[in-house]
Design a protein around this nucleic acid. Structure first.
Length: 991
DNA sequence: TGGAATGAAAT
DNA sequence: ATTTCATTCCA
């Protein structure tokens, strides 16, 4: 849609330009195609370039037959073919040459000038043979020779035809010069562009009329699959990528600069990079169901695959032939942005071609101003023409629609009128600036505008502008990836003390500043006896030890006053100094600030979608502005990326919701959901079993503490004797710990049943109901049971939950727990049997007989009580899929917490570690598919909250007022029913 | 974002 | 010796 409107603008502008700036005879060139058709003029496009322009048909000097690879029809046409077709041209004289891939030695593709390449790579040992018969120089020579022959044709027959030259280089040049030192590479680029225009001069000299040339800017080469494929192979990939982006921008800058001052003809410069980025962005917005202010992202994106090429090389190592490479072709070539590792797909080429057509039609040349100045003597007529146009009656249908003149009269002048005099940058600015101001986006736009300005400055495309070339000195780069989660320092004794007391201090002195609070606590600290201080010091020691345990590589690196080096973006200073540009998460892409290559060279800002903070994976790099601009948004942690820190993988599962470390925002406030005194578990180290995914048993049993310092583990969390400040029982600690974290961890220890057998995707579900208000849990379980029965699609069973430790005495024994676990290993098998017995029951409505066939009411757990397991219910009526569902009113969570609270800790384990260790004993049993969490709130507390579904944790939280009078809201129950059904239905698909 | 306290750990 | 950063949260 946008494209069409631009075409319209271009079309309108084109006639305008014709009137203003070209000779009358010229106007016939690109005029009405109908007229040209009956005149029988020949229109031709003369093509120079590399693989991206090579049509495969050759006028002269064709490549050796063996080197010609027939074009796969699925690949589609190259851009010059689109250009020719749309301009109704008759012939394409192709002098472009693809890289010859079949030579034994590695060859270099078509460059601008192979002698430059030979020079700059002279000192290097050449590991590529240059096919010098394919560079631009040679191509021009071929053209001239060809044209000479052609001149045999009587002049008058050729008089009226037009020729459009296209010239597209840079691909191989950039890839080749990447291997050079930057200074040399830049010099090579300088020379290449220089040579390119020298060739252009030669062409212009041989053509009678002013030449018209299409020279597309280069595309960011780092996006090519060819380059991306090296991501893992190349040691210094990030740095190379970084340099290549720089060189690419440099290429375009020099190219544009040279073009704007060129006076021997008209140059049109499409910007394929911009076009491609638009598509990529559209794809990304679309896939995230986001649209920007312009509505981009709403339609189906053009490309579904923006990274993988259609053709992929598969290396097959078979016994017979050792390294057989098989090319695998995609099913939908048009959906890919890339055809193979260097070639763009047909649709991508078409974009470029169309863009070029638009520019040519609209006569939007980059050097239009220079042309006008340069031909100053002929310039006088301009005024005349203006008058003429004003007086003249339209001579062609298109003229009719024209506003008049570059110096257009305001009467009929609409937007297109101004366009031709605008620099490309201004043009894009005008096009891209959304007119309707949506308030929500205004902020972003405001911030973007500064970015845009910077880009404009750098791009400075307007002909008369002073060019600010990229400086030779390396520009500032910063990584766009989410930085590693920051590791905080261990807290010292005072901080722990302060943390512990501050709530009560604040309560006692309401309304005081925190600094004041600090003072008070400071005094209180001083007043504290030596023994108490020692106690806190011990705690600090313990924290330190745990810290050391958890982050062995951690090193305190305070930011030094004047010193550079430690970026505020990565205060951990982990490996950033070594790999300045490397980012492990986004594949090493780092980006230049403040002008990112992604704010494409046309200055089109890539609008940041409203809410991006997580889940951005490789393709993320196409939308980097989000990270740049949303620095203040909470950073997503932990989901991906190999952390260079030793083992925070799993531990962060527990920690992540409790503590948010945002390196970018020293957000001092840590959000902890639970009660005041929790100094002890800010950072809980984990039992070693949690640290690796499949640890050897020896590791499992290793005591956690810090035996090496020989200090007796302080039982701070357990002994109420220490003093009033050593707070709580294990139970309190555990209950205070956010239950989603507990459930999440349990979910890893005991994942849901993994469908493996045939037909197992129709399995039933296990649903646990957890919560500390047992009455509420029972209520909800019963309700769910009834509800599922009523649905007639389920066969629900209420199962007996794991037995809690005996109420009467304080301590349960570990043996009790082990017995329980043992029993449930048996029950686990039965549960699986039950939910996978997909055969329908006789009649779901008669499920009141349920108590019989599931081992739920057995008072004394004995695993061999499996005489009548669910399979007995099998009946030969499988017409409807009635899914068995097991409801557990409390399950592993409740049991593990209960036992962990009652089994005393006698070693260095902290309360949470203790629980985690106990929880892992459930490993090997089946976990719930979904957990319903009943969260109780006291009567006084702020009103009920709607149920919340956390898909990742697989937990649906339902709120209920604590106490006897508490009842679930009907709406909440409806929601529970809905979510449970949805969940069970969704299970088959996702798994 | 500074500030108020204290202490650990860095240069 | 000096500086930073752990904690907290308001102005």
């Amino acid at each position: 849609m946008r494209f069409i409107s631009r075409l319209h603008a271009c079309a309108a502008a084109s006639v305008l330009m014709i009137v203003c700036f070209t000779w009358r005879s010229h106007s016939a060139y690109f005029e009405n195609t109908a007229r040209a058709a009956w005149r029988g003029n020949t229109r031709r496009v003369v093509v120079f370039g590399n693989d991206w322009s090579d049509t495969g048909s050759y006028r002269v000097a064709p490549p050796t037959r063996a080197a010609i690879v027939p074009r796969d029809p699925d690949r589609g046409q190259v851009w010059v073919e689109t250009l020719c077709r749309e301009l109704m041209c008759n012939t394409i004289d192709n002098f472009a040459r693809s890289k010859q891939s079949n030579a034994e030695a590695a060859t270099v593709g078509a460059l601008v000038d192979s002698t430059i390449w030979a020079q700059v790579t002279a000192e290097k040992s050449n590991n590529g043979t240059l096919n010098s018969s394919s560079d631009f120089k040679t191509q021009v020579g071929n053209y001239l020779a060809y044209d000479k022959e052609r001149e045999q044709i009587p002049q008058r027959l050729r008089r009226d035809d037009w020729t459009l030259f296209t010239l597209f280089f840079g691909l191989w040049d950039l890839l080749e010069y990447l291997t050079l030192e930057k200074e040399f590479a830049m010099r090579a680029i300088d020379k290449s562009i220089e040579e390119l225009f020298r060739g252009l001069d030669t062409l212009a000299a041989h053509v009678t009329t002013p030449v018209k040339v299409v020279i597309p800017k280069m595309v960011d080469v780092t996006y090519l699959p060819l380059f991306q494929a090296k991501k893992n192979a190349m040691a210094d990939f990030a740095e190379n990528q970084h340099r290549l982006v720089f060189l690419w921008k440099y290429w375009n800058t020099v190219l544009l600069q040279s073009a704007t001052v060129w006076t021997n003809g008209t140059i049109y410069m499409p910007d394929p990079h911009r076009l491609i980025m638009e598509q990529v962005r559209a794809k990304q917005l679309h896939s995230r169901h986001i649209s920007d202010a312009l509505g981009v992202g709403l339609q189906e994106p053009l490309f579904d695959y923006i990274e993988q090429p259609c053709l992929r090389l598969k290396h097959i190592t078979s016994a017979t032939d050792l390294h057989a490479a098989v090319v695998e072709k995609c099913s939908a070539p048009a959906q890919h942005l890339f055809w193979d590792d260097i070639q763009l797909s047909g649709p991508a080429h078409q974009l470029i071609g169309r863009d070029a057509v638009g520019l040519v039609r609209a006569n939007q040349a980059v050097n239009i101003e220079r042309l006008m100045q340069g031909t100053g003597t002929n310039e006088k007529p301009q005024g005349k023409e203006e008058e003429k146009v004003g007086d003249n009656t339209p001579t062609s249908p298109m003229d009719d629609a024209m506003p008049s003149g570059g110096l257009c009269k305001s009467t009929r002048a609409q937007e297109p009128c101004a366009a031709p005099t605008l620099s490309p940058v201004e043009r894009t600015k005008q096009e891209e600036m959304p007119s309707p101001a949506s308030t929500s986006l205004q902020n972003n736009r405001k911030r973007l505008s500064t970015v845009v300005e910077v880009v404009q400055r750098e791009n400075s495309a307007s002909p008369s502008d002073d060019m600010s070339l990229p400086s030779a000195s390396s520009p500032d780069f910063c990584c766009l990836c989410q930085p590693e989660p920051k590791i905080p320092r261990p807290r010292n004794a005072f901080i722990l003390y302060r943390q512990h007391h501050q709530q009560s201090i604040i309560a006692r002195n309401a309304g005081l500043n925190n600094p004041e609070i600090s003072k008070i606590i400071g005094e209180q600290w001083k007043a504290e006896g030596a023994e108490a201080k020692k106690n806190w010091q011990d705690l600090a020691q313990e924290e330190k030890a745990r810290h050391q345990e958890q982050y062995p590589d951690y090193r305190y690196q305070p930011r030094r006053a004047g010193k550079a080096g430690s970026s505020p973006l990565n205060p951990t200073g982990q490996h950033t100094t070594v790999d300045k540009y490397r980012c492990h998460k986004c594949g090493g892409r780092s980006i230049k600030t403040p002008t990112s290559p992604f704010v494409d060279s046309a200055g089109t800002p890539n609008l940041p979608p409203p809410n991006f903070s997580e889940g951005l994976m490789p393709t993320t790099r196409y939308l980097p502005m989000t990270s740049v601009l949303n620095l203040e948004s909470p950073v997503h942690r932990h989901t991906h990326g190999p952390s260079s820190l030793s083992n925070i993988q799993v531990s962060s599962a527990l920690r992540e919701d409790a503590t948010m470390y945002s390196p970018l925002t020293p957000n001092k406030k840590r959000r902890f959901e639970y009660g005041p005194p929790q100094y002890a578990q800010r950072r809980d180290s984990l039992p070693p079993i949690m640290i690796r995914h499949s640890p050897p048993n020896s590791v499992t049993m290793q005591p956690l503490g810090t035996p090496r310092d020989g200090r007796k583990p302080s039982a701070m969390e357990l002994s109420p004797a220490t003093n009033s400040s050593s707070p709580r029982t294990v139970e309190e600690v555990l209950n205070a710990f956010p239950y989603p974290n507990k459930i999440k961890l349990l979910g890893r220890i005991t994942p849901p049943y993994k469908a493996s057998g045939p037909g197992s995707q129709n399995r039933g579900a296990i649903i646990a109901v957890e919560g500390d208000d047992i009455a509420a849990v029972k209520d909800l379980s019963n309700w769910l049971h009834e509800y599922l029965i009523k649905q007639k699609e389920f066969k629900p069973r209420m199962a007996e939950p794991p037995k809690a430790p005996k109420d009467d005495d304080k301590d349960a024994t570990f043996e009790d727990y082990l017995n329980l676990i043992k029993v449930w290993h048996g029950k686990s098998k039965e549960m699986i049997k039950y939910i996978t017995s997909s055969a329908s029951p006789s009649s779901p409505s008669t499920s009141h007989t349920s108590d019989k066939d599931f081992p739920d009411k057995d008072s004394n757990e004995n695993s061999n009580d499996s005489r009548s397991s669910a399979t007995s219910a099998a009946s030969p009526t499988p017409a409807v899929h009635i899914k068995p569902v097991i409801i557990l009113p409390t399950f592993q969570l409740q049991a593990s917490v209960a036992y962990a609270s009652r089994i005393p800790i006698q070693d260095a384990y902290s309360a949470t570690d203790h629980w985690q260790w106990m929880a892992t004993l459930w490993r090997g049993t089946v976990g719930p598919d979904l957990t319903l969490c009943v969260k109780s709130y006291e009567k006084g507390e702020v009103g009920s909250v709607k149920p919340e579904m956390d898909d990742v944790v697989r937990c649906l939280t339902v709120f209920r007022e604590r106490g006897a009078q508490g009842k679930f809201a009907d709406a909440d129950l409806r929601r529970v029913g809905f979510e449970v059904r949805e969940w069970i239905e969704g299970m088959g698909k996702s798994a």
